[in-house]
């Protein structure tokens, strides 16, 4: 009885094995995922491009939106939000399922795979899903002539970075909250929704009263949106602010995933 299991190999690639398994599970939902990832942008592009956008431009032209069409102004924010939604889907649900419902994490942890690798694997697979969602969204933006192909392709990594920053923190929270499943309903309604509305998504953050602006400052969505606007059109962001946004989002990624990895390890070892 000797299969010659190479533990050092598992130490190196364990997180990728977990990510591969997660992608396999996701592939079972590919029709639904594709419908959401194509349908959602379509609805926004039609509603905002034809409806709200026309109304906004009738009112104030493009003076409030850096001189560009309203739909183009909000497109980077929509892209980042779709990355956030995708990462949320693929971190919160699998984590609760893994620890509680089906206890898949305990099965995975009964192999040489560690809790830290499980956390990282789930996170990586969520990023894959975000890359796919955002790429579809970006393709539709090009197709609808909202942005021009070119430097604007940077919208994809920027949106994924925004989704990844939020997702890393959420992954930690999902592993940390052991009892209250309702937490995530509340999170959706009282954190995600206000974040979506008040992160400079539909209007510049500076047009909000100063006491509401901190919502944007802490929100990964605002940072990703600002970066995205700089990538998509001549937004006039200073090099300093570009640095600040990238640093903030990267810090959240590292902080979140570090916390999540040790929380996974701790919870599985109970």
């Amino acid at each position: 009885m000797n299969t010659g299991i190479d533990v050092s190999r598992i130490e190196r690639f364990g997180a990728l094995y977990i990510a591969a398994a997660r992608l396999k599970s996701m592939s079972k939902w590919k029709v639904i995922i594709a419908a959401v990832d194509i349908g959602n942008p379509l609805f926004y592009l039609i509603a905002v491009g034809i409806g709200i956008g026309v109304l906004v431009e009738k009112g104030s032209g493009t003076s409030g939106t850096s001189g560009i069409k309203y739909i183009a102004f909000i497109a980077p924010a929509l892209l980042a939000s779709s990355a956030i939604a995708a990462v949320m889907d693929e971190t919160v649900f699998p984590t609760i399922e893994g620890f509680k419902w089906r206890k898949l994490f305990f099965a995975q942890n009964a192999t040489p795979i560690t809790g830290r690798q499980i956390a990282l694997g789930v996170y990586l697979s969520a990023l894959c899903r975000a890359i796919s969602s955002v790429s579809i969204y970006y393709t539709l933006l090009i197709a609808f002539n909202v942005v021009e192909f070119g430097l604007s392709a940077l919208l994809i990594p920027v949106a994924v970075l925004g989704g990844g920053a939020f997702g890393a923190i959420i992954l930690y929270a999902a592993a940390k909250i052991e009892k209250d499943d309702q937490f995530f309903n509340i999170l959706g309604r009282l954190v995600i929704m206000p974040m979506f509305l008040f992160s400079g998504t539909f209007f510049p953050l500076s047009s909000m009263p100063i006491y509401l602006q901190p919502i944007g400052w802490v929100s990964p969505l605002w940072h990703a949106t600002e970066l995205g606007r700089e990538a998509a059109f001549d937004y006039g962001l200073s090099a300093l602010m570009v640095g600040v946004h990238i640093t903030y989002l990267s810090t959240l990624v590292i902080l979140g995933i570090t916390l999540a990895m040790s929380q996974f390890e701790r919870r599985l070892a109970k």
């Binding site: 206890k103 099965a107 009964a110």
Partner: peptide, 17 residues
């Protein structure tokens, strides 16, 4: 991980996918 490489574990609750 080294010890688990030599174990087969069948938990009380089936945690299949």
């Amino acid at each position: 991980p080294l010890v688990r490489a030599h174990l087969g574990v069948v938990p009380q609750q089936d945690n299949l996918d």
